[in-house]
Amino acid sequence: MVNEEENKVKTLLEDISLLESYIQELFSFTPLPLCFVNPKGMVLEVNPAFVKATGYDEYDIVGENLKAFMKEGDAEKILKEVLEKDSVKGKETVIKKKGEGDIPVTTFAKSRKIKGEGVNGAFFSFFDLTQVKEKEIEVKETNKKLEEKMEEMEKINRLTIGREVKMVELKEEIENLKKELKKYKKEE
């Protein structure tokens, strides 16, 4: 009987170990920065992608409030929303990097509920928008350059049209002068 119980416990412990390594591998594998926070916003777990993106050490992140790593006021706002509404999708914010530089991100968050106990925290994931933002700036600059070119073209166009009109007017004037000259010649 005792042996049977011991075997059960052993199997359960092995199962927990396997589950832990599975979660750990999954958490480490994803390239998306992820973290889990308690209802006060204290970071209880982060994945290697979050560590890499922010440049902070795991020891510096875990046990800190999420607001230390996000644009002022955003962490509190998003956390409040996710705890109230269960999930938040696609909120744009900024993650602060260690030292200088920020990362523009889209945030997705999901609250974690435990049956009979209610919400005990929330998962956060961040999609890096750096490249998208860089492309946006590139597109804006190209548009600006294009607009400048268009303006220049219009200017040239206006000038060219103006010249043509002037030519026609001059031609008409020459014709009129010729006619008048002819008149004078006849009168003489």
Binding site: E20, N38, P39, M42, V62, G63, I114, G121
Partner: peptide, 16 residues
Amino acid sequence: APKKSFLVKLFMRYFL
């Protein structure tokens, strides 16, 4: 130690 502890992760539910 709690920052990297597997036990802490396992019992996060109480960390309110």
